[in-house]
Simulated scan of single mutants.
Amino acid sequence: MMLAACGSDADEPPTDLETAESVGAAEALARNIEAVDFLDLELGAKIVGPQGPEVKAALSNPEGNFADMRSYVACPAGMTVCDPATAPEGTIYTYVHIVYPGEDNQPDSGSGEGADSSDVERATAFRMTRPSTGFTGAVGYSKDEAMAAIGAKADVVITCDDGALVWTVSAGDGGDQWEQAEPLTFWWQSTVPPAGPVEAYAIEANYTMAMGNGPYPGEAPDAVNACDRDIVSGAEG
């Protein structure tokens, strides 16, 4: 899962996520899911909901806003219209979340200008706070963005926590971190289309958790969640 090291970092020791130092860390590492680079996806049209093709939200808690998030759901490549009401049976939906710690530097969107938290010095995880309904096992993030934000020693380890997906981001104890205004794109695929924005996502930043709304699958009691069955598979574009 580690991005390739380069330059003077090539001989550096691996970060803490690659060399588990506790039983809990070893168990998490053993459960990690292989990530597919966001740039390798070929997506079709986006679902257009009441807020348009994208949902913008702040990830917040009583202390303030700790991130902006821009989300959308896309159909597979070749579909020029993405409407769950008319989509063929078996359509796979790709949920995409672009997370900006602190803010997105766009005053007319997300948490907005002047409404962000104090400077985010270290964000360590993006996660779902509800089960990933219909999760197919295909999941990933933008490796180029991780490299730009964190550097050559970036780790992004994807695991499941009580049926929900967790992307743990680390650069070790020193050096560059995922921090203020450095966007990272996370994605996952589901057999179930969204029912609308729901408080189902969170960021762990500055040693606190902040939550917010994003597209979330509708009710589907019979849908398989790969987190519950240890299923992993390739992405469907």
Results as ranks from 00 to 15, higher is better:
A77W: 04
G163Y: 01
D222E: 15
Y141H: 11
R31H: 07
D155M: 10
L43K: 07
A138W: 00
G218L: 06
D161M: 07
G78V: 13
A164N: 06
T129P: 03
Y201Q: 05
P101R: 01
P13G: 13
Y95T: 08
A25C: 09
G140K: 00
P53A: 11
R122A: 10
P53L: 09
T133Q: 05
M147N: 10
E103R: 01
V23L: 13
F38A: 10
F66H: 01
P14D: 15
P183S: 13
G140T: 07
G24C: 06
P194N: 08
M209R: 03
Q106T: 13
G134W: 00
I231Q: 03
A148N: 15
R130P: 02
D155Y: 06
N213R: 12
C160F: 01
A35H: 06
A210H: 05
T129E: 02
S22R: 07
A123H: 00
W188P: 06
I92A: 09
P84I: 12
E54K: 13
C227R: 02
A235M: 02
I47L: 14
A220C: 05
A235N: 02
A205P: 01
Y100W: 15
G24L: 12
S132E: 00
D11M: 12
Y95R: 14
C82I: 06
A28F: 06
F66M: 02
R31M: 07
T159F: 08
N105Y: 09
G110W: 02
E34L: 13
Y141Q: 03
A58F: 03
P62C: 10
V23R: 11
M128K: 08
L39A: 15
A146L: 15
T86Q: 10
G214A: 15
G52T: 08
T91W: 06
I150E: 05
G114Q: 02
E63N: 13
D68F: 05
V48I: 13
A235W: 04
R127T: 04
A202G: 01
D144E: 14
I47E: 05
D68A: 14
G110D: 07
M79H: 12
L29T: 14
N61S: 05
